[in-house]
């Protein structure tokens, strides 16, 4: 299923791995304390002491971008996990058992996916209010329909294959067939959806936090930093550029990874 030779896959995996490595190192060590202010070095341009310069409080931008990338990635990881787990459950059960619940849920699914996801996120944030955990919850809910639809389709397809009939004949309980026999087989198809989920999650988190409706201070996030950086655009353009570049690299990495895994390109 995974074609290692695929160019998109290689570049995407490369970018993603480098970003993950930087995030992991950033958990233990960053060149400076991301929150340490230094009045003597306000808004210095990128140079030897500060590879990406400093911000309006004299904080090291590189350390802050590393921390923000980690925070944004963590939010993406949590929200994609929520979407994936609930999607597996809902899609698996409706795909395997079918019936009127399947019909109703799929109609509901269609009307939810008709909303632009940013609008849906705004509505959910109006309900839950802002904050790190609420944005995770809101994005997680938004991802459920996509995962549920793909899982349902795949489960319905696998259901009619011989190995399932075989398992039934041997008297395996249907729950076990669904979760132990079928689920591992749909994983390869899900991989590209997971990658595109990360892509969308990073974009959505950055957008919401940029609007001031996502992660709130003092929690770090790339979107929130971009919002701050915009105010100092004329005096410290490297701040906005560094943050934006981190977002682009994350999105590009996951996007290419998803295409390389055989997914549809992001619509």
């Amino acid at each position: 299923m995974i074609n290692i030779k695929d160019r998109n896959f290689r570049i995407g995996a490369g970018i993603t791995l480098v970003m993950l490595l930087i995030i992991l190192i950033g958990l233990i060590w960053t060149p400076y304390d991301p929150n340490a202010m230094n009045a003597a070095e306000k808004m210095t341009a990128p140079g030897l002491r500060h590879p990406l310069g400093t911000d309006n409080f004299g904080r090291d931008i590189f350390s802050r971008v590393v921390q923000g990338t980690g925070a944004t990635f963590l939010i993406a990881l949590c929200s994609v996990s929520i979407g994936l787990l609930v999607g597996l459950l809902v899609g698996g059960l409706t795909g395997y058992y079918g019936g009127w619940i399947d019909e109703v849920l799929m109609r509901l699914n269609d009307s939810i996916t008709a909303f632009p996801s940013l609008l849906l996120a705004l509505v959910l944030i109006a309900v839950f209010h802002t904050g790190k955990y609420n944005i995770i919850l809101a994005l997680g809910i938004i991802f459920i329909p996509t995962f549920a639809r793909i899982v349902r389709m795949e489960v319905a397809r696998q259901k009619s294959l011989d190995y399932v009939a075989n398992a039934k004949l041997m008297g395996v309980k249907s729950m076990r067939i669904l979760f132990v026999h079928i689920m591992p087989n749909i994983l390869p198809v899900l991989l590209s959806t997971i990658a595109i989920g990360f892509n969308n999650a990073v974009l959505a988190e950055a957008s919401m936090s940029y609007l001031g409706l996502g992660v709130q201070p003092p929690d770090p996030s790339l979107g929130r930093m971009l919002n701050e950086a915009q105010a100092y655009l004329s005096r410290a353009p490297w701040y906005a550029l560094s943050v934006g570049l981190a977002i682009i690299l994350l999105v590009l990495g996951f996007g290419l990874l998803s295409e390389g895994l055989g997914g549809e390109s992001h619509a």
Partner: peptide
């Protein structure tokens, strides 16, 4: 394709 519209705006 990977550039978010709001960053492009900035």
């Amino acid at each position: 394709m990977a550039v978010p519209p709001f960053f492009l705006g900035i």
